[in-house]
């Protein structure tokens, strides 16, 4: 199939099924990294960092970036519009026809099931992300990069600490970049 059509299809699907905002799109982006030559898992990790550090909704930023990596300027535009198209239609239908949609019993039951599932899907995506980011493939198999691993653990711990937990993500990425240069990761 034509690459542009595939891009439209994949992001339309993501927009329709990614429930819970930005992070919920990550499992879908990961599927794309596996299935298509558009971008690699490592690049997906860069996309997450950039999307968290620039203005705008994270999900939109990631879609624009992923689309740009696949098909340039046109790709960025197409993937973003395909991502938002299903929500625009659904929200307009709800606004027009369904008063008290969010109070509906079936809607509540569906989302009660989906919410914990999305948490699990994102957890699996993060495990895959760790596999590609903290391990390097070498001749004898994959080797754990202990410096990157330490950086990951330190940042996670600092994010739990009261004094530093409110810091903006961009601060962590700048620190991580500095550590990367300093320790020649």
């Amino acid at each position: 199939m034509n690459q542009a059509l595939l891009l439209i299809f994949e992001f339309f699907k993501t927009g329709l099924f990614a429930i819970g905002g930005g992070p919920a799109t990550i499992p879908f982006l990961m599927d794309m990294a596996e299935k298509y030559p558009w971008f690699t898992m490592q690049e997906l990790s860069d996309m997450i960092a950039i999307s968290e550090s620039t203005p705008g909704p994270i999900g939109i930023n990631m879609a624009t970036y992923a689309g740009f990596r696949s098909l340039g300027l046109f790709g960025g535009l197409v993937s973003t519009l395909s991502l938002v198209f299903p929500s625009v239609v659904i929200i307009i239908l709800i606004a027009k026809f369904l008063d008290g949609f969010q109070e509906n019993r079936i809607v509540k039951a569906v989302f009660a099931g989906i919410r914990p599932a999305v948490t699990a899907l994102i957890a699996v995506a993060v495990i895959q992300l760790i596999q590609v980011s903290l391990f390097t493939e070498e001749a004898g198999g994959s080797v754990f990069n202990y410096k990157s691993g330490a950086l990951c653990v330190i940042i996670f711990i600092l994010m739990q600490w009261k004094k530093t937990k409110k810091l903006h993500p961009v601060v962590w990425f700048l620190l991580a970049a500095a550590a990367g240069i300093l320790f020649q990761l």
Binding site: R115, I122, F183
Partner: peptide, 27 residues
């Protein structure tokens, strides 16, 4: 390249935190 490898490690820490927060809220 070095900066990006560092950032990728940082992204893992940040995403672990995202999952942890989501788990606390949704489970």
């Amino acid at each position: 390249q070095h900066a990006l490898v560092g950032i990728r490690g940082g992204v893992c820490g940040l995403m672990l935190n995202t999952v942890y927060m989501l788990a606390k809220k949704s489970l």
